[in-house]
Measured scan of single mutants.
Amino acid sequence: EPIEAIAKFDYVGRSARELSFKKGASLLLYHRASEDWWEGRHNGIDGLVPHQYIVVQD
């Protein structure tokens, strides 16, 4: 079951695997890939989301 998150800041992906998004964007998170990253989805694209840039919705 994906988790919803909201972007705290704009983020520009630094590689093809990283998602880019704007502050306030809604993201879906699948699972924690590491301490710093989530596997997630934004605008229909799957990729990595940096933990420091999002607020996970409970």
Rank of each mutant, 00 (worst) to 15 (best):
E1N: 14
E1G: 04
E1D: 11
E1I: 15
P2C: 15
P2E: 15
P2M: 15
P2R: 15
P2I: 12
P2D: 15
I3V: 12
I3W: 05
I3F: 09
I3M: 08
I3A: 05
I3G: 05
E4L: 05
E4P: 09
E4N: 04
E4I: 06
E4T: 07
A5E: 01
A5P: 00
A5K: 02
A5M: 02
A5F: 03
A5G: 08
A5W: 01
I6P: 01
I6F: 13
I6L: 08
I6C: 10
I6N: 05
I6R: 13
I6K: 10
A7G: 07
A7N: 02
A7R: 01
A7V: 02
K8S: 10
K8P: 01
K8Y: 07
K8D: 07
K8R: 09
K8L: 08
K8H: 13
K8Q: 12
F9L: 09
F9C: 02
F9I: 08
F9R: 14
F9A: 09
F9V: 07
D10Q: 07
D10L: 03
D10E: 10
D10V: 02
D10H: 07
D10G: 04
D10P: 08
D10A: 10
D10K: 04
Y11G: 00
Y11Q: 02
Y11T: 02
Y11D: 00
V12L: 12
V12N: 12
V12F: 14
G13C: 08
G13A: 14
G13S: 13
G13T: 07
R14P: 03
R14K: 06
R14H: 03
R14I: 11
R14E: 06
R14T: 08
R14Y: 04
R14Q: 07
S15L: 13
S15P: 04
S15K: 07
S15W: 10
S15E: 15
S15F: 08
A16M: 05
A16I: 05
A16T: 09
A16Q: 12
A16E: 11
A16V: 08
A16C: 06
A16P: 06
A16G: 13
A16R: 11
A16L: 10
A16Y: 05
R17S: 11
R17N: 07
R17C: 07
R17E: 12
R17Q: 10
R17P: 10
R17F: 04
E18Y: 11
E18T: 10
E18S: 08
E18D: 12
E18W: 02
E18I: 10
E18M: 14
L19D: 00
L19Y: 00
L19I: 11
L19K: 00
L19N: 02
L19W: 01
L19R: 02
L19G: 01
L19A: 03
S20G: 06
S20K: 04
S20F: 02
S20P: 02
S20R: 06
S20A: 07
F21N: 00
K22W: 07
K22D: 12
K22I: 04
K22H: 09
K22L: 10
K22Y: 08
K23H: 05
K23N: 05
K23F: 02
K23P: 03
K23L: 06
K23M: 10
K23E: 12
G24Q: 06
G24I: 01
G24S: 08
G24D: 09
G24N: 15
G24L: 03
G24Y: 06
A25C: 11
A25L: 02
A25K: 08
A25Q: 13
A25P: 00
A25D: 12
A25E: 15
A25H: 14
S26D: 10
S26G: 12
S26I: 11
S26T: 11
S26F: 10
S26A: 12
S26N: 08
L27T: 02
L27R: 01
L27H: 01
L27E: 01
L27C: 06
L28S: 13
L28R: 11
L28P: 03
L28H: 12
L28C: 13
L28A: 14
L29Y: 02
L29H: 01
L29E: 00
Y30A: 06
Y30E: 07
Y30I: 14
H31S: 07
H31Y: 12
H31F: 05
H31L: 07
H31T: 07
H31I: 03
H31N: 04
H31Q: 08
H31C: 08
R32Y: 03
R32L: 06
R32Q: 09
R32N: 03
R32M: 06
R32I: 09
R32H: 08
R32D: 00
A33Y: 15
A33Q: 13
A33W: 06
A33G: 10
A33P: 12
A33E: 12
S34V: 04
S34T: 09
S34M: 09
S34F: 07
S34Y: 07
S34G: 12
E35N: 12
E35R: 10
E35H: 10
E35C: 09
D36L: 14
D36F: 12
D36H: 11
D36N: 07
W37R: 05
W37A: 08
W37C: 05
W37M: 13
W37F: 07
W37H: 12
W37Y: 13
W38K: 00
W38Y: 03
W38V: 01
W38C: 01
W38G: 00
W38T: 01
W38E: 00
E39G: 04
E39C: 05
E39Q: 10
E39D: 13
E39R: 08
G40Q: 02
G40M: 01
G40V: 01
G40D: 00
G40Y: 00
G40I: 00
G40A: 14
R41C: 14
R41T: 09
R41Q: 03
R41I: 08
R41W: 14
R41A: 13
R41K: 10
H42E: 06
H42D: 04
H42S: 13
H42I: 13
H42V: 13
H42L: 07
N43T: 08
N43M: 15
N43V: 05
N43H: 04
N43E: 15
N43L: 15
G44K: 15
G44P: 00
G44C: 10
G44Y: 12
G44H: 09
G44M: 08
G44F: 07
I45L: 14
I45F: 13
I45T: 10
I45K: 15
I45W: 15
I45N: 14
D46P: 15
D46F: 03
D46C: 05
D46V: 09
G47P: 01
G47S: 00
G47W: 00
G47E: 00
G47M: 01
G47Y: 02
G47A: 03
G47I: 01
G47H: 00
G47K: 01
L48I: 04
L48E: 03
L48D: 03
L48A: 12
L48C: 04
L48M: 14
L48Q: 07
V49H: 01
V49Q: 00
V49S: 01
V49I: 09
V49D: 02
V49E: 00
V49A: 06
V49G: 00
P50K: 11
H51T: 09
H51K: 14
H51I: 05
H51G: 11
H51L: 03
Q52K: 10
Q52H: 14
Q52L: 06
Q52G: 13
Q52D: 15
Q52E: 11
Y53T: 07
Y53G: 13
Y53M: 13
Y53V: 08
Y53P: 04
I54D: 01
I54H: 02
I54A: 08
I54C: 08
I54L: 12
I54T: 08
I54P: 03
V55I: 04
V56L: 07
V56F: 15
D58G: 11
D58C: 04
D58F: 11
D58A: 12
D58Y: 04
D58R: 11
D58H: 04
